[in-house]
């Protein structure tokens, strides 16, 4: 039997180690942010946002096409992923115990863990190979498909916390089921669903692997959904593995822009939770 003091000493050490773990776990993010600002901010200027990429040796290149391309890809992905995901979430919350609901829940989680590169080769097989060329549409579809399971699950979670009494109140007023679901249940959970949607968008905004063989990247200005399109993450990748210092600087600047987009969306997800009457559900 150990003495009381040695046991307390051990307890103190172990608790101290959890503090250390907390410091070590937060350190990488702070380091990455510091490096991004330190190495990226100096290359950021207005021209970075307005100019096209320039060949090595020429100064003043930007990533205008990649920034716009990323926004277009996010838009396509959201158009595919959000409605299907929210619809699936509604199904899960309304038909909680059907065999299909159990299957969808399980497969959503499995799909969530699917490597994004696998989604990339799937999209290539289904959309690029038959069409015969890379396209923004294929890229957007690949990342949009990645959003579906994520949005499905968060939507279900958010709808689940809406009290049954509200649903009953609407039904008792003569609301048909579909209007009860849309104008009362979904409306009450809207802030939460928006948060989930934003988290999903933030997650796919920086996806690179599924774009490699779908959107492919484009050195030129293109906003056509049927053409290969530039994307910030792809551009960062290309520049980062290049041997040129100017391109490395560009990569850091691009990464700073990308992470700013992602962080702003993530923070918005936190803020949006406090909507007008959102927090008042009992």
């Amino acid at each position: 039997m150990r003495t009381r003091t040695s046991r307390h000493w051990l307890s103190g050490v172990m608790i101290g180690l959890t503090y250390l773990a907390a410091i070590l776990a937060t350190l990488p993010l702070l380091l990455i942010l510091a490096h991004l600002i330190g190495k990226g901010a100096s290359s950021l200027s207005l021209s970075f946002f307005t100019n096209m990429p320039k060949p090595v040796g020429e100064t003043g290149g930007g990533m205008a096409n990649a920034i716009v391309g990323t926004l277009i890809l996010i838009g396509i992905a959201s158009l595919i992923g959000l409605p299907i995901g929210i619809g699936g979430g509604i199904y899960l919350s309304e038909k909680r115990r059907t065999p299909l609901a159990h299957t969808v829940r399980f497969l959503s989680d499995v799909l969530n863990g699917l490597p994004s590169i696998v989604m990339g080769i799937f999209a290539w097989e289904f959309l690029v190979r038959p069409a015969g060329h890379f396209s923004a549409l294929a890229g957007g579809a690949a990342v949009g498909a990645m959003m579906i399971p994520l949005v499905t699950r968060t939507t279900e979670e958010m709808l689940r916390v809406v009290p049954t009494s509200l649903r009953e109140a609407a039904l008792a007023l003569g609301y048909p089921k579909w209007r009860t679901s849309l104008s009362v249940v979904l409306r009450t959970a809207l802030a939460g669903i928006a948060t989930g949607a934003l988290v999903a968008v933030a997650r796919i905004a920086g996806e690179t692997a599924p774009l490699l063989f779908t959107a492919f990247g484009n050195q030129f200005w293109s906003t056509s959904v049927h053409e290969p399109i530039a994307a910030l993450p792809l551009q960062i990748f290309t520049y980062a593995i290049s041997p040129y210092d100017e391109w490395h600087a560009q990569a850091w600047a691009g990464a700073l822009v990308l992470i700013t987009i992602v962080l702003v969306i993530s923070l918005a997800a936190r803020v949006v939770t406090r909507s007008r009457f959102g927090a008042a559900v009992d």
């Binding site: 380091l31 690179t208 993450p233 960062i236 850091w252 992602v262 993530s266």
Partner: peptide, 16 residues
């Protein structure tokens, strides 16, 4: 937030 950092940003940071 570590989960929100894009993979390519980790790669960039990793290289340099």
């Amino acid at each position: 937030l570590l989960a929100a950092v894009p993979s390519v940003v980790y790669g960039l940071w990793g290289i340099f």
